[in-house]
Design a protein around this nucleic acid. Structure first.
Length: 465
RNA sequence: GGCUGGGUGGCAGAGUGGUUAUGCAGCGGCCUGCAAAGCCGUGGACACCGGUUCGACUCCGGUCCUAGCCUCCA
């Protein structure tokens, strides 16, 4: 398996530190508000990677954190007049609902910052003891100049960084590039007692401490959005390497590209933020997931009003192929085609992998041999599972969210129409079909009976709000 | 301004120094009582300008556009 490593700028063969136990850490959300669709690209992309790793290695420990202490959470809590836990728990729950909508499997560990304050203290102390950090006016700062390799992950020259810095440099900083590990809290702000006074963790130390706690000093894969390369991951790396006597922190850094909306940055100020819960009212979560996997994870992905419709229609084709085989013989065999695996092994090339799914669908649609069809359906389901797609019952997929009562009515009408057709009473048959069309039901007559589906084509999938 | 990516047909989106991506949409045909689905076929693309090469969408240089980052950010 090859993985593009941000640190080297190349695709590298993936060799875990311990082939018996692979470790992966992905930066999770700060739970102060709803995450938008762009925020879900990493969980979905790394969910596919986790599925792949679990298939190919005996053990994977995958951690994705919840940042539940942050100034934005503080602000939201203060405004609502509640404890920060009220805010963070509310939006953690929302985050979990959205993950479930998108078919993202739970991680092995979901560490919360507020549950790791002790470990954060320990790590800060280690950094101070080793001369990489210093306390000043209630703050503890990491001394960037103490880590010679600083900047090499994000390919930045520390000198230029400082020259271009547009922030006000606090007087207590020895060096303008130094970043905070611990900062003081005012009395009304949430805080924890510490050797450096009451305060709260800085923005980067939490991930270092949580990764260390759950995955050890060196982790195999660390993922996140490309915007996190600097400063977040650069700083994480500096902290962890320095706290661990120079030991490597991450073997493979992976960063996903950004999602834009109609070629504009998705941001609250532009009013173009798309929420999973809103999209899920229009389409199944699987359609949203399909869109997120339809572009390579490192490439930019532009969301526009057509992508959901296209994804919906594409999935219809795959489910349509699955529906040609009504039952599946029990089979433990692995039928996933090599080309599909090769695509995923090539730096998680999900668009190529999807193309292989369509190749399977075409074979399935043209197959006349029972045995072959069974294998093809099995292959499609197994390959789909690796992508987190195609796991619904095909009939249920096409039935949409019709109630059972409706389904019963539809079946009743279809039975009547079949009789009319048997009697060659085309007028009556078409009358019934028109009736069903009015119910948004499309019929498909086949050799083995009549299937139906809910017409989603003119359902308003426009994603603008 | 600096650093790092990206610009492929109507849309989405892979890939490659010479050969069909794939899907959606379109068009023609087959199938069908008629449709739908499916199948077969089909048109249509590599931002621009140079260079290297027998040959460049692919490699190199430059230009333009675009995204992210330059201490909150997926």
């Amino acid at each position: 398996m090859k993985i593009f490593n941000t640190e080297s700028g190349k695709k590298e063969e993936f060799v875990p530190q311990n082939p018996e136990h692979v470790t992966m850490y992905v930066c999770g959300p700060t739970v102060y508000n709803h995450s938008h669709i762009g925020n879900f690209r990493p969980p979905v992309v790394f969910d596919v990677l986790a599925r792949l790793l679990r298939r190919e290695f005996p053990k994977l420990t995958y951690a994705r954190n919840i940042t539940d202490i942050d100034d934005k959470i503080n602000a939201a809590a203060a405004e609502a007049g509640v404890d920060i836990s009220v805010i963070s728990e509310k939006y953690t729950a929302a985050y979990h609902r959205d993950l479930a909508t998108l078919g993202v499997l739970p991680t092995d560990v979901e560490p919360k910052v507020t549950e790791h304050v002790e470990q954060i203290h320990t790590m800060i102390q280690e950094l101070i003891d080793a001369g990489h950090a210093y306390a000043a006016e209630g703050h503890v700062l990491f001394s960037v100049s103490s880590y010679a390799d600083y900047g090499s992950l994000s390919k930045r020259d520390p000198e230029e960084l400082l020259a271009g810095a547009r922030v006000d440099v606090a007087a207590y900083k020895k060096d303008a590039g130094d970043f905070v590990l611990w900062k003081p809290s005012a009395d009304e702000q949430p805080g924890w007692d510490s050797p450096w006074g009451r305060g709260r963790p800085g923005w980067h130390i939490e991930c270092s401490a949580m990764a260390e706690t759950h995955l050890g000093d060196t982790i195999d894969i660390h993922g996140g959005g490309t915007d996190l390369v600097f400063p977040h991951h650069e700083n994480e790396r500096a902290q962890s390497v320095c706290a661990h006597s120079g030991k490597q922190y991450v073997r493979y850094w992976m960063h996903n590209g950004f999602l834009s909306f109609n070629a504009e940055k998705m941001s609250k100020s532009l009013g173009n933020v798309l929420l999973v819960k809103d999209l899920a009212e229009k389409v199944p979560g699987e359609v949203i997931r399909y869109v997120l996997l339809s572009a390579h994870y490192r490439a930019p992905l532009d969301w526009n009003d057509d992508v959901l419709t296209q994804a919906r229609n594409s999935l219809d084709r795959l489910y349509g192929a699955l529906r040609t085989v009504t039952s599946l013989d029990a089979s433990q065999q692995d039928h996933i085609p090599d080309a599909f695996m090769a695509a995923l092994h090539d730096d998680l090339n999900t668009p190529k992998a999807l193309a292989e799914l369509f190749a399977l669908a075409k074979q399935l649609n043209t197959s006349t041999d029972h045995e072959t069809s069974q294998q093809l359906k099995s292959a499609l389901l197994q390959a789909g599972e690796l992508l987190g797609l195609l796991q619904h019952d095909a009939d249920a997929w096409f039935a949409g969210d019709q109630s059972e009562a409706d389904a019963a009515t539809i079946d009743q009408l279809i039975t009547e129409r079949l009789q009319a057709r048997a009697d060659k009473d085309w007028g009556r048959a078409d009358e019934i079909r028109d009736q069903l069309t009015a119910m948004n039901v499309v019929l498909e007559d086949g050799a083995d009976g009549t299937k139906w589906r809910i017409d989603s084509s003119d359902a308003n999938l426009s994603s603008s709000k």
